[in-house]
Design a protein around this nucleic acid. Sequence first.
RNA 1: GCUCGUAUAGUGUAGUGGCCCAUCAUGAAGCCCUCUCGAGGCUUCGACCCGGGUUCAAAUCCCGGUACGAGCACCA
Length: 492
Amino acid sequence: MATTEGLEAIETILESEAPHLLEKKIQTRRVGLPELPNLNGEKPVLRFAPNPNGPLSFGHSRGLVINAQYANDHDGVLILRFDDTDTTVKPPMLEAYESIPREQEWLCGYPAHRIVIASERMDLYHEHARKMLAGGFGYVCTCPAEDFKEHRVGMTECPCRANSVEDNLDGWKRMNDPEGYQPGDAVLRVKTDMTLKNPALRDWPAARIQTNAHPRVGNKWRVWPLLDFQSAVEDHLQGVTHIIRGKDLMDSTRKQTLLYSHFGWEYPETIYWGRVKVHEFGGFSTSQMKKDIAEGLFDDWNDPRLPTLSALSRRGIKSEALRSFWIELGLTQKDIAVPLSTLYSHNTKSIESTAPRLAFIRNAVPLVITGDVERSGNIASHPSEDLGVRSFSFEEGVWVESQDSGKPVRLKDLCDVDADGNVESIERSDKRPIIHWVAGGSPATLRTAEGQNLKLEEGILETHQLPVGTIVQLERIGYAIIEEEGLLMVHD
RNA sequence: GCUCGUAUAGUGUAGUGGCCCAUCAUGAAGCCCUCUCGAGGCUUCGACCCGGGUUCAAAUCCCGGUACGAGCACCA
């Protein structure tokens, strides 16, 4: 038709028959996070569940930011849950129960609506373990780990699987009895199907015996649930509607879904994100950091070289920057490597307008200024915001960086000088480089965290009355935070 | 080995069949600036993993390949 009668004819027909087909859709770029699936107008219940074996770090912040943002956007509930059921491999750290809620509030901008501590809810997990045994969809397995691995790989059932409900209930008693099974002797398993395609799902373990004292509840309990069981039961009890987590936990979802169908529960919506690597942070783990601090490699959890939230905060990284950083990365399942400069650019946006300018001269050399120029005065602390003024006086000499000396330059906000320091013009007269300078000032050290090293740079800092904790912009260098003992670089 | 997942500029990201010779940010380069090479403004650069298929039409759906990642713990 288009060839015989032309496009206009088609347009005319469409206009009268179906005008909506002619409307141009306007391309819109989605901002913020994608819509939460299957919300159906309900208020979502989300949770973030760290192991309190140390303070929160950069790696935790993604889960916290995303969950908190969704909860906030939809007037929902954010649960902060301590998954502290392991006393052996990654034992809980008592201080973390205090620091994590504090760090969570700093990062998210509001406190979690509910705090749940798994070790205080052990009776509920035991209750569900008994229900599982009584319902015949769980069993006590006394096979050595290596033997069970063979069953898992070979798709064969272990002998314990055939035990009666009575046998299992008895086995459960013996697991809980200090005189009975010892750690490693027996484990509670969820009965799934040994011929399942995915080997990870075959009769997975739900609880084991641990005799190490728990820092909060001591030796009150002997049988402790594993993550997949504890988390699954707790999510149901708390009415969690959406689980957002790393895709390394995909098999957990599948395991837990099998458990949910045994119990007759409905599994929450699940969303995953991929792995994020920040090259500059290297391969830090909570347990590794703990070890390094103990060995004196780092001062403490606030050491500026560490990627903990407390260290990041001390270094002048704002929680808003962390939030917009993660929200921009979104929820793709891709494994990504992000440079720290991306986070820094978000941070620049949140600190730029409130950071007073200050000059810091590294490799300082004196500059003798001759000629007609004001020997003292005031300069604005910020080029566009009203952050007051800083004053200078030539009485104690003028310093510039050695790389800037010996050539015609413009002293920023002051005057043009020639290579020898003779004043040539008060107004900017040509395109010569603009440099920063200090009149008077005092010695200071600028510390920069560079990976696992701490770089120290001596220099002369402009005199100022700014309080400790102020984030300043060192002209032509970058942002730094004023500390008791000098300057700590934020980023450039 | 088995299972699962992902593939858009240097780095991230938008995009669910026609708005797309593809969005935005970051980065790099350059320009501007009564004044920061590192602040701000502007400009430019740069991508749909490969091969088939479905369709009038595919970055978008299907199949195969490749690459990368994850799980297969009595850790979380």
